[in-house]
Simulated assay, not measured.
Amino acid sequence: MSIYRKVQAVERLYHNLEKDVATFQKATDLKCKSGCGMCCLKPDIAASPLEFLPLAYHLFKNGQALEWLEKAEKSNSKICINLNSLIAEENGGFCNLYTQRGLICRLFGFSAMLGKDRKPQLVTCKTIKEIFPEAVDKANQHIKERKFTPVISHYYQQLRSIDAELGQNSLPINKAIAQAIRTVLAYYAYRNPRRAG
C-alpha cells in the first residue's frame, strides 16, 4: 500500500473517530475547559509513528518535512514539538497543526479503556473531573449502562490494521513524529514528488 493510501486510511479512521467522540460528548456533556491545553504539556506522551503519518505527509507536501524532522530530532524536550505556546482559536487549541494531530490526542479525555475485567472505564483528565464533575458522573453512568463509548483499544486495532509495523511501536511523541517524517521522506526519495499521492 502506498504512503498516500495509508494516509487516506488513517484520515478515514480519524474522521470516524471524530464522529464517535462528538456523539459521546453530546450524550454525556463532557468537554474541555476553554483554552486549557494542559494535556499537551504532559511530558511522557507516547504514540505510534502511524498516528502522525498524515502530519508527515502534510509537511512533505508543503516542503517542511526536513525542517520538522530536524526540529524533532534535536528537541531535548519531552513535550510535543507541535505544541503552540499561545492559544489560537482557529487552530482548535494549542496544537500548531490541530487537524494533523495524532490518535492519542484525539482520544484522550473522551474515551474509555478496558480494565482487567474487560469493562470500559472513562479516561479523562483531572481538569475535566474538577470543573465538570456532573458530566463525568453522566459519562460514567453512560458507560455503565453499556451505551456507545469510544474505546481506545478498538481504534488502535484499526490503526494497526493499516500498517502493523508503523502502528505497533509506541514511542515518545517527538520520536514518533520523526519516524513518521523519515518514513514519508524515504518513500518519496526515489519517486517523483509531483506525483506524491
Rank of each mutant, 00 (worst) to 15 (best):
T149H: 01
Y187D: 04
V151R: 02
I173A: 02
Y156V: 06
K31M: 11
S85M: 12
R195M: 14
Q121C: 11
K33C: 08
T149V: 15
L53R: 11
R5S: 13
G102L: 02
L97W: 11
S48L: 04
S75T: 15
C39P: 02
D44Y: 12
H142P: 07
R160Y: 05
I152E: 14
D29G: 09
A189E: 13
V151W: 02
N76R: 10
G63Y: 04
C36H: 05
A189Y: 03
P193G: 10
R194K: 13
L66W: 06
Q158E: 12
G92S: 08
I177P: 04
K116F: 01
Y4R: 13
R194V: 09
L114N: 03
S161P: 10
N16T: 04
P150R: 01
Y156E: 06
S111W: 00
E130N: 15
E89A: 13
K31F: 06
L159M: 11
S75R: 02
F110D: 03
N91F: 07
V10T: 06
V151I: 15
D137N: 15
M1E: 07
P43I: 02
S153F: 09
R182E: 11
A88M: 09
C36K: 05
L122S: 12
L83K: 11
S153M: 11
M1D: 05
Q179H: 10
K71Y: 09
S161A: 15
R118M: 13
R191M: 12
L122D: 09
S2H: 01
S2P: 14
L103C: 01
I81G: 00
E130P: 09
I81R: 00
G109L: 04
L66M: 10
S85C: 06
K74L: 12
N140H: 07
I181M: 04
K19M: 13
S77Q: 03
G109T: 05
F132E: 07
G167I: 08
R160T: 13
L185Y: 04
G197H: 12
K61S: 09
P43D: 05
K19A: 14
K129M: 14
I81T: 02
E90H: 11
K74S: 15
I87C: 10
Q64G: 00
L107C: 02
N76D: 15
A139P: 08
R182P: 06
V21Y: 02
D20P: 00
V7A: 04
E165G: 08
K119S: 10
I131R: 13
I45E: 02
G92N: 07
A196K: 05
E67R: 11
L66D: 13
Y57K: 10
Y57R: 10
A88Q: 13
R160I: 10
H154N: 15
Y190L: 13
L107R: 04
